[in-house]
């Protein structure tokens, strides 16, 4: 089943429940009318909350950047200077 169908099915089910609630009048109609609005607002809140939490807990790795910089500097100081000796050095590093 295409994913859009899944989501539409979910929305149709929710709408059916809502219409059912309106018909049955278990809770006052004035409240029931507002339910879709609550749904949309809470969906928006959920999105904002997730983005906010994600942003606050965004994992960073400054130490990795330093390590990589050290490796790069060391490697390039051994190699880029001279292309002929570059791979001689590589050989030494390997063996």
């Amino acid at each position: 089943m295409k994913h859009i169908v899944k989501i539409l099915t979910l929305l149709v089910t929710l709408s059916a429940l809502w219409v059912g609630l309106l018909q049955a009048s278990i809770i006052p109609k004035s409240y029931t009318w507002l339910l879709p609005l609550y749904f949309i607002v809470s969906l928006g809140c959920y999105g904002l909350l997730m983005v906010g939490v994600g942003l606050m807990q965004f994992p960073t790795c400054p130490q990795e950047a330093i390590l990589l910089q050290q490796v790069c500097t060391k490697f390039h100081s051994l190699t880029i200077v001279d292309h002929d000796s570059c791979f001689v050095v590589l050989d030494i590093l390997l063996l």
Binding site: G54, F58, P59, T60, C61, P62, E64, A65
Partner: peptide, 9 residues
Amino acid sequence: RYVKDGGVH
């Protein structure tokens, strides 16, 4: 990148 021990710099 978005879990513990992962990360972005």
